[in-house]
């Protein structure tokens, strides 16, 4: 019940606050390159951006609809390989491959959603985990099509005769895509659908009693989040130029869920922050060399134990407390 109360106040925020926060995001995206002095830093920022796009979508599912997915990397992987195979092997225009990939993932998610979202808690976790693993095994095994465990090279993204190439260009592409993703997500949360979604998270039975068609909304948000992942996957494939089944496997799925929960569930900006921190952290932790795994594991465990609400909401709370004092 506390959860509902909290999200309701958030929903009651006036529109101009939403605009303000979007503007803040735009400023951060615009100013950040000044601090990123070489292509390696830009590269990390871009990877963080891709993860953030997926997480913003996944957060709708986990944070607002209250459903777990341990298989979202599967959708990311399908998008990536759709682009890789259609563009590189069959010479499609990249934008067409991206759209076909997204459409395929959307339909697949729609078909899977109904039977799967009937499941609860750990059973849902198991089912989504299974789907993700099956996708990654198919990608790993169909060597002729996908290049097998070592992956495949992907051509660069060309549109209207322009080639998207280099970190600087991609930074802006990803920045804009992230902005759009956040904007879509905030709009969705503030719409009647969003209210219905929050009802789903609170108590499904109660929501149904008052006439919310929970299944329909859950299916919808599942599809939306899967499509977010697919589009990010497609762009990612063109950016890195190399995709491997590891991008679709269980660990990637776990990583994505972790980013959402770590940053703060039911908070779009939390999902973004979670994605950024957990993309940068492993890179920064290479300083610890042999200890990096231990440090990463410990950070995950203890943030979740001591800040079960996630990073952003907890820090927000602390700052608010200090202001009041």
């Amino acid at each position: 019940m506390v959860q509902i109360a909290a999200t309701r106040t958030a929903a009651a925020q006036p529109i101009n606050t939403r605009l303000l926060s979007l503007a803040a995001l735009a400023v951060v995206i615009a100013v950040l390159p000044l601090a990123l002095t070489n292509n390696f830093y830009l590269d990390i920022a871009i990877l963080a951006g891709f993860n953030a796009i997926v997480c913003v979508g996944l957060n709708l599912l986990i944070g607002y609809a209250g459903q777990i997915s341990l298989g979202h990397a599967g959708f990311f992987g399908i998008g990536a390989y759709a682009s890789g195979i259609l563009v590189t092997t069959y010479g499609w225009p990249p934008i067409a491959a991206l759209l076909v990939g997204a459409l395929f993932v959307g339909v697949l998610a729609f078909l899977l959603a109904k039977p799967i979202l009937r499941l609860k808690g750990h059973y849902l976790a198991m089912a989504t985990l299974g789907i993700g693993i099956i996708v990654s095994i198919v990608l790993r095994t169909e060597t002729g099509l996908t290049g097998g465990p070592d992956g495949m090279m992907v051509d660069s993204f060309k549109i209207f005769g322009l080639e998207l190439y280099g970190e600087k260009t991609w930074y802006w592409v990803v920045g804009v895509m992230l902005f759009i993703a956040v904007w879509l997500s905030l709009n969705l949360i503030d719409s009647p659908v969003g209210r219905a979604l929050r009802a789903v998270h609170g108590s499904e039975v109660a929501a149904e009693v008052v006439g919310v068609d929970t299944t329909r909304y859950k299916v919808m948000v599942f599809v939306v989040s899967a499509v977010f992942a697919s589009v990010a996957g497609s762009l990612f494939a063109h950016y890195t130029g190399l995709i491997t089944p590891a991008k679709a496997d269980f660990f990637k799925s776990i990583e994505l869920v972790t980013m959402v929960v770590f940053g703060g569930m039911a908070s779009t900006f939390g999902a973004v922050i979670g994605a950024v921190v957990l993309t940068v952290l492993p890179q920064a932790l290479t300083v610890f060399q042999d200890y990096s795994q231990i440090v990463l594991g410990a950070i995950l465990m203890f943030t979740m134990v001591f800040m079960p609400k996630g990073l952003l909401p907890t820090i927000e709370g602390l700052i608010a407390q200090r202001r009041r004092a």
Partner: peptide, 18 residues
């Protein structure tokens, strides 16, 4: 929540492997 607990145990497993 269920997800948080899942992540805690996953964190534990990464830690133990390390």
């Amino acid at each position: 929540s269920v997800v948080t607990l899942i992540i805690i145990t996953i964190g534990a497993s990464i830690f133990l492997r390390g």
